[in-house]
Amino acid sequence: MPAENRTEIEPFEKMERRTAAAYVQAQLQKRIESGAFRPEERLPSEAELASSFGVSRPVVREALMSLQALGYTESQTGRGTFVVSDRISGALIFGRYTPAQIQEVRCALEVPVVQLAAVKRTEQDIGVLASLLGRIAETSDPDRRNQLDMDFHVAIANASGNPLFVMLIEEMRGILEDYTKELTKAPHRRGEARTEHAEIYQAIVRRDPAAAGQAMARHLEAGEAVFGGGASAPDGSPA
């Protein structure tokens, strides 16, 4: 029987910047993984969490939906949200690779690739990237959106002018499509990803390799945070 009686929890850190739902999720996830919230324990109510974080209840609701999608919690009608595991669901291992391993490879590969693309891109490359961003924004089909998301990253590699980079990213395509599909289960990620893609695109348009690399790093770090890559303050270091 889930344990509903619990001691008073210590105050949460107030949300400052960064997407509110992502930050709330990261903080709760950190508490669950550390054992502050134990399996079978009920989390504070939406109202209590909203007050603790200084955010609205819809923001808390998005964060709780993300935790449930990742296998940390489950919602019980009329009773609240209960912790069911202190780690990400075992299903979130893509082939033989964990999210952390995928993140390491993507950072090592895609950050320098986008920097090179910002230097070598052509007007044709800019047109392809702009078209893909428009198609991503227009589609409501998650599977199609994930395919277009990968097309965007492949197009960046193509803009680098080095076919080996294209081959390497294409080789990872199957793994990355599964990875991004799981990311879309976090409700806040679709809007965040749209903004992050736009920042990457604008840096490439401006031929600014430093900004392009920083924008790509932020994009990859935001994805890692969904899988428990950390819960730093919203204006702090990688999440």
Rank of each mutant, 00 (worst) to 15 (best):
S34K: 08
P234Q: 06
R218D: 12
E8Y: 06
Q103T: 10
V111T: 06
L64Q: 02
N158H: 12
H153I: 06
D151R: 12
A239P: 00
E170C: 10
P187N: 09
L133D: 07
R79A: 03
P209L: 02
E196L: 08
G35T: 10
Y72V: 00
V128C: 05
A47L: 10
T19S: 01
F82H: 10
A198L: 15
E74T: 04
T184L: 10
D151T: 08
R135P: 01
M216C: 14
Q115D: 06
E110Q: 15
D208E: 10
S140R: 14
S131V: 03
I102A: 05
T19D: 07
F152S: 02
F165P: 01
Y179E: 06
A217C: 06
V84M: 08
F37D: 01
D235L: 11
A21W: 01
A222V: 04
N146F: 02
L168Y: 07
Q202V: 02
E221A: 10
L133W: 00
V84S: 09
P209I: 03
N158D: 11
P44I: 05
T98M: 09
A212L: 14
Q27W: 03
S232G: 15
L176K: 02
G95T: 12
Q101E: 15
E48A: 13
A91G: 13
R61K: 08
L168F: 14
F12P: 01
A26R: 00
R189N: 13
I204H: 00
S232Y: 09
A212H: 05
P2E: 04
I169V: 12
F37G: 00
T19Y: 01
Q124R: 13
M1T: 05
G223A: 08
A91D: 13
T180E: 12
R207K: 12
L67W: 02
G161S: 14
E123R: 13
V205Q: 08
K14M: 04
S52E: 14
P99L: 09
T195V: 12
R87P: 07
V128A: 07
S45E: 06
E10T: 10
M150V: 14
L220P: 01
P209E: 04
A186F: 08
E171T: 12
K120A: 10
Q76I: 07
A22W: 03
I88T: 14
E224A: 12
E8C: 04
G228C: 04
G213N: 07
A137G: 09
F12K: 02
R189V: 08
E224Q: 11
G90F: 07
E13M: 04
A239M: 12
A215Y: 11
I200T: 07
P99F: 07
A69L: 03
R144Q: 14
F94V: 09
R6S: 11
R189F: 14
M15P: 06
I156D: 03
I32E: 01
A21E: 02
R194D: 13
R87Q: 14
R144Y: 11
F152H: 04
R194N: 11
I175K: 01
R42C: 05
